[in-house]
């Protein structure tokens, strides 16, 4: 492709602005496989010993338990968010149901509240229904807090599907449910995909909710695990080890971003094919 302007000035400016982040990521990467003398940032030797936590539970405690928990945590949240958003978004976009405007308004209002303002109420509810200090409770709260965003996004995608397709499906003898599943859902797939990614990334990084709503539970997600590793008073404290665990924790997200970057951007396009 030829352009009638050159790209390099823009790229240079962007590079300069993001330089601190790039440098930090570079050091994060380098430090996990090298040793450096005390007081110096320049590495002087190669080692894989910082990664020994992967196979040696004595280094920082077992890492695979929290990893599995995090995967389960993330997967459940993604499933709930997708399931509810894809159906609720359809209802809000298409069905002439009572209190539709109220629901739409409610979703926006919910979206506007920061998590911390809700946390006491959420805590009380969890306590009341007996889900405090359980993984289920945290999953439900996290998924619930993501739903306003998810429903709103999916409604936007459904809005772009022409009415005639739905009418044509009904004329062809299909029930409303069949129409939704076989004709409408395939057309909002980019939205579903982007939403799934978004939910996964968000859930993977969640720290506050497990911390506050399940402080003494017998499960640990990676963010909490990372926090324990970073405790300077711990006997196994090692800053490079901490960085390795951090990188281990971040890698899946970086990979998701790198692979699905284009699809993730879909969410901002409101579903129009670009």
């Amino acid at each position: 492709m030829t352009r009638n302007y050159s790209n390099w000035p823009i790229i240079l400016v962007l590079l300069l602005i993001s330089a601190p982040i790039i440098v930090m990521y570079a050091f994060l990467l380098v430090d996990t496989v090298t040793t450096s003398p005390p007081g110096s940032a320049i590495p002087n030797g190669f080692t894989l010993s910082h990664w020994r936590f992967l196979i040696d539970p004595t280094a920082t405690g077992d890492v695979w338990g929290p990893t599995l928990t995090t995967i389960l945590f993330t997967a459940s949240i993604v499933l709930i968010v997708l399931g509810v958003s894809s159906t609720a978004g359809y209802a809000l976009s298409r069905l002439n149901m009572p209190f539709r405007r109220f629901f739409l308004g409610g979703i926006l209002v919910m979206h506007a509240f920061p998590l911390v303002t809700l946390i006491i109420g959420v805590f009380l509810v969890l306590q009341f229904v007996g889900l405090y200090n359980t993984l289920t409770g945290v999953v439900l709260v996290k998924a619930g807090l993501m739903l306003p965003f998810g429903i709103w996004i999916m409604k936007g995608f459904y809005d772009t599907v022409p009415w005639e397709i739905e009418m044509a499906g009904v004329q062809d003898g299909a029930s409303r449910f069949t129409v939704w599943r076989r004709l409408i859902l395939p057309q909002v797939r980019p939205g579903l995909f982007a939403l799934a990614l978004f939910a996964a990334i968000d859930a993977w990084g969640e720290y506050m909710l497990p911390r506050i709503l399940a402080p003494s539970a017998d499960f640990e997600v990676l963010s909490i695990y990372l926090n324990t590793v970073s405790d300077p008073d711990s006997t196994t404290y090692n800053f490079n080890l901490f960085k390795s665990v951090g990188l281990f924790y971040t890698l899946p997200i970086l990979a998701l971003y790198a692979i699905f970057r284009d699809r993730l951007m879909n969410i901002f396009g409101g579903g129009t094919k670009g």
Binding site: P162, E164, I165, A168, G169, V170, Q171, A174, L183
Partner: peptide
Amino acid sequence: SQQRNVGVVFQNYALYPHMSVFENIAF
């Protein structure tokens, strides 16, 4: 509508974009 057995051609044709022509007609 489902029980009326009426065929409709819409102004914008309302074809199902994710299906092939065969699947559209077979729907």
